[in-house]
C-alpha cells in the first residue's frame, strides 16, 4: 500500500526524520507513538504525499511519490482517508456536505452515494446532525464526522493523526472500536497518538504493530506499551 524506504525529511535545515523505512501492508494495523513534536504528523504527511521526502523514497500504491505530479497525488489521496486531530472542515457548509466533500471534489456525488452517506452518518452516530454547521458540533462529533469523511470514498488506507486528542475516554474508545471495525473490513489503519492508554486498550481488540518515533528515527515500540 504505502512504503517508505530510508526516508529523511528536514525543514529549514533541521532534520525531523531520518532513515525511516516502513511498509504499510494491506489490512495491517499500526500505532505510531512518540512525544509531541517528535515527527508523527510529518510521518503521516509523507505517507499521503502532503510532504515529499528530502531523502529516500516513498511509494504510494506502488508509485514513486517523486515521479507523481500534483494531480496524481490528489488521485492517490482519494484512496487514503485522513483524520486529523483538529478535524478541518469547511465551516460554511452543513455537516452532510462536509462529509460528502470527497465525493464532490472527485465528481462522484450521486443519489446512490447519498445512500452511502446516510449509512455512514448512521454508523458514526451523526444522523441528527445532517444540517449542523461544523462549529456547532462537539469535539467528539467532529472527530466522528472527520472519520466519516475519511471513509466516504471507501479508501484502502486510513491514517489518523491523534484522532482522540480532543475527546473524552468514552468517545476515544468508541472511535477506536470504529477504526478496529474498519480494519476487520480489510482497511489498512495507522493511528498516530501519544495516548498510551489508547494503545493499551487496543491490545484486546486488534493485533497492532506498535511503532515509536524517537530522535527522528522510527523504532519498534517496546514492552512498556
Amino acid at each position: 500500500m504505502i512504503e517508505l524506504d530510508n526516508v529523511a525529511y528536514s525543514y529549514s535545515g533541521a532534520a525531523i526524520l531520518s532513515g525511516v523505512s516502513l511498509e504499510l501492508a494491506p489490512g495491517s494495523f499500526h500505532f505510531l507513538t512518540g512525544p509531541s513534536g517528535s515527527g508523527k504528523t510529518t510521518f503521516l504527511k509523507l505517507c499521503y504525499g502532503a510532504l515529499r521526502p528530502t531523502e529516500g523514497q516513498v511509494s504510494i500504491f506502488g508509485e514513486d511519490l517523486a515521479a507523481m505530479d500534483r494531480d496524481a497525488v490528489a488521485m492517490a489521496r482519494r484512496r487514503i482517508g485522513v483524520v486529523h486531530q483538529d478535524c478541518q472542515f469547511l465551516d460554511h457548509l452543513p455537516l452532510a456536505e462536509n462529509v460528502a466533500l470527497p465525493l464532490t471534489v472527485s465528481g462522484q456525488a450521486s443519489p446512490e452515494q447519498a445512500d452511502n452517506l446516510r449509512e455512514l452518518m448512521t454508523w458514526v452516530g451523526l444522523t441528527e446532525k445532517y444540517e449542523a454547521l461544523p462549529p456547532e458540533l462537539s469535539g467528539g462529533e467532529r472527530q466522528r464526522a472527520a472519520l466519516a469523511r475519511a471513509l466516504i470514498l471507501s479508501p484502502d488506507v486510513i491514517l489518523a493523526d491523534e484522532p482522540t486528542g480532543n475527546v473524552d475516554w468514552e468517545m476515544s474508545q468508541r472511535l477506536l472500536r470504529l477504526l478496529v471495525e474498519l480494519n476487520r473490513m480489510g482497511k489498512t489503519v495507522m493511528i498516530a497518538t501519544h495516548d498510551l492508554m489508547l494503545i493499551r486498550a487496543a491490545k484486546s481488540l486488534v493485533n497492532a504493530r506498535n511503532l515509536r518515533i524517537a530522535g527522528g528515527t522510527l523504532q519498534a515500540a517496546g514492552a512498556d506499551l
Binding site: 494531480d71 489521496r77 485522513v82 486529523h84 478541518q88 469547511l90 471534489v105 470514498l153
Partner: peptide, 14 residues
C-alpha cells in the same frame, strides 16, 4: 484553510 481541506480530501489543483 479551505484549500487545505480540499487538498486533504483529494481535490486537484484544477
Amino acid at each position: 484553510q479551505v484549500i487545505a481541506v480540499l487538498r486533504l480530501v483529494g481535490a486537484t489543483d484544477g
